[in-house]
Design a protein around this nucleic acid. Sequence first.
DNA 1: CCCGCACAGTCCGTTTTGGGACA
DNA 2: CTGTCCCAAAACGGACTGTGCGG
Length: 596
Amino acid sequence: MKDSKKKNKATKILTTTSLNDLVQIQKWWEKPPEEDNDKSDEEEETKKWKHMEHNGVLFAAEYEPHHVKIKYKGEPIDLTPEQEEVATFWGTVIGSDFAKREIAIKNFAKEFRKVLPEKYKNADFKDFDFTPIREYLDKKKEKMKNKTPEEKKADKEKRQKLMDYYGWALVDGSCEKMANFLVEPPGLFRGRGEQPNTGTIKKRIYAEDITLNIGEDEPVPVCTQPGHSWGEIVSNNEGTWLAYYKVRKNTKYVFLNSSSKFKGMSDYKKYEKARKLKNCIEKIREDYNKKLVDKNMENRQLGVATYLIDRFALRVGNEKDLDDEADTVGCCTLRVEHIKFPENSPNTITFDFLAKDSMRYLNTVKVEPIVYENLKRFVKGKNPGDELFDLVKAQKLNDYLKSLMDGLSAKVFRTYNASFVLQQQLNKKNFKIDDDINEKINYYNSANKDVAVMCNHQRTVPKNYEAKSEQMQKDLQEHQKYLAELKDYVKNFKSNKNKYKDSKNEFVKKVFPSSKEKAQILLKNLEEKVKKKSLKLKDRESNKQVALGTSKLNYMDPRITVSWCKKNEVNIEKLFSKSTRDKFPWAMYTGPDYHF
DNA sequence: CCCGCACAGTCCGTTTTGGGACA
DNA sequence: CTGTCCCAAAACGGACTGTGCGG
C-alpha cells in the first residue's frame, strides 16, 4: 500500500534520528526579513514553506466507564457509558465557582437532559446528585498522588515519549517544537464572563474531524485512533498550521511553538512595524487631530476613535455575534452606556466596559477639550445601548490607518505604546553597576507594570492574598525590630551584652552572638534580608491585580529588555524565563545601546 | 546546639483553550 | 462571511521555600 510506505518514511525521519541532530537552529535573524519593498517577492511571501512533515495529532483516550451511579431523588440510577461520561463532566466541576454559575447550570442541565433516558426527560436538574462520582474522582486523584516514585517516573517517561513522537515537526530542514498536539479532550465549555455557551458540552473529536497539513510528497502520519482515519490531508503552504478541527463554530489549529521560525519572524516583524509607527507617530497624530474638527461627522468619529486607540491602548473592537459570544466591546463597538462625563471635572471621562475576556476596563482620564466636546456630541440624543461611534466600524478605521502608514492597524498602537512606555521608564533611571540587583529587578518590574496597567492586563487576586499579606507584614515588622536591636547590640557591644537574649517569636529567631564579629556578619545578612522582604512586599502589593506576563510576552519589544540587562549587568534569566528566552532568540544578541 | 531532611504549602513557569483582530 | 494567526487569563503541575523534627 502506498500509504504504509509513506508511514514508514515518517517514522524513520522523526523517530529514528536523534532530536539533537535534527534541531539545527536556523539563525534567520542574522539576515533579518526585509520589509517587502520589492513587489515581485510578494508571491514568495505568501508561500510559508516548501517542506513540512509531522506525526499528526494525539487523541484523548477513549472514555472508560467507572460504573459509579449518580442519584435521582436519592435513588441510584443506571446510566449507559455515554450518559455516564456526560454526568462525569459535571462531577469534575461540582463545588467549583464555575459549577455555581447560573448559565453553566442551565446549559449543562439542558445537555444532560438530551442524553438521559426518556423517563427523566422532565426531571428537575436539582434532583440529581453527582456527589458519588465526585467522591470517586477525588479518590482517583488521591491514588495518583500517592503513586510510588517509580510509578511516577514511568508516567513521566511515557509522557516524554509521546512528546518526542508528536511534539516535533520538520519544516524546511529544521526540527521545530509544536505548540500543541493533543486534541482538546471532551468536556465542558468554559466560557469567560457571560459567555452564552458556558457549560455546554465539547464533543469528542475523532480523526475524521481532523484536517492535516503536510508537504505535497510527505508521508501521511499514522492515525492512532483505532477504527478511524484522517478526515482530510491537504498541502497548503500558504498557512503555517499543521492541522485543524472544529469545536462547534470555532476552528482549533495545531501550530508550531513560539520558539519556531514562523512565530519568531512574525514577532520580529511586528516589533519592527511598531518602530516604524514610532517614526511617523507625530505625522499621524497631526492627521487625526485635524479630523477632530472636520465638518464631516464620520471623519470626526474616525478622529476620536483613533485618538482613543492611540492614547489609551484600546483594542479596535470588531463586531460580535451575541448569540454565541459574550457581550464585550472594543473602541469601535463602545456604547453610550460605557462612557461617563463626571460632573465638575472638565475634560474628564470615565470608561467602564467589559473588554476582551470580559475584563473590566475602568479608567478615568483627561482628554483634549476638542475630544471631550466631540464625545459629548456623539452621545447626544442617543440611548445608553446605542453605539458611540455609529459611523465608524473596525474595518473603516483600519482602512484609514492603512492610508497613514503601510501595514498600520489598530493593534500596532498597542505594541508601539507598550514598547515605548517600557523604553521611556527604563531610561528614566541610571543604575550604578554595583547597585542592588533586587532594586534593579524591582525597577524593571515597575516599568513592566506601567505597561500592563496601560494595556489593562489584570489578574484575579488569589484567594488567600490578604491573609498572606498580613502575615508577611508582621514578619517584616518583627525582622525590622530584630534588626534595630541587633544594630544597637553591635554598636554598644560591651554595655549591651546582657540586655539582649536570644529568643524566638512566631516569625523570627533572634540571635545575639557572643562575639562582635559574628554579630556583625549576622547584622549584614539581616539587613539584606529585611531589604529583600520589604521590596518583595511592596512589589507584591502593587502587582496584586496586575498580570505582567502578557505584556512581556506579546507587547514589549524584547530587545529593550535584553539591552537594558546588558547595560545594567542584570542576568536576563532574572527577567525572562526559559520559555520566554526561547521565544525571543532573535532578540538575545541585542547590544547595550539598542533603543526602541 | 546545629545540621540535614522530609513534608507541606505556596509560588511561579508552562500549558491549555477561549477571545479577538484582520485580510 | 471565513480563514488564519495573535493575544489572554485561568488551570495545572512542578519547583522552591520555609518549617519542624530528629539525630
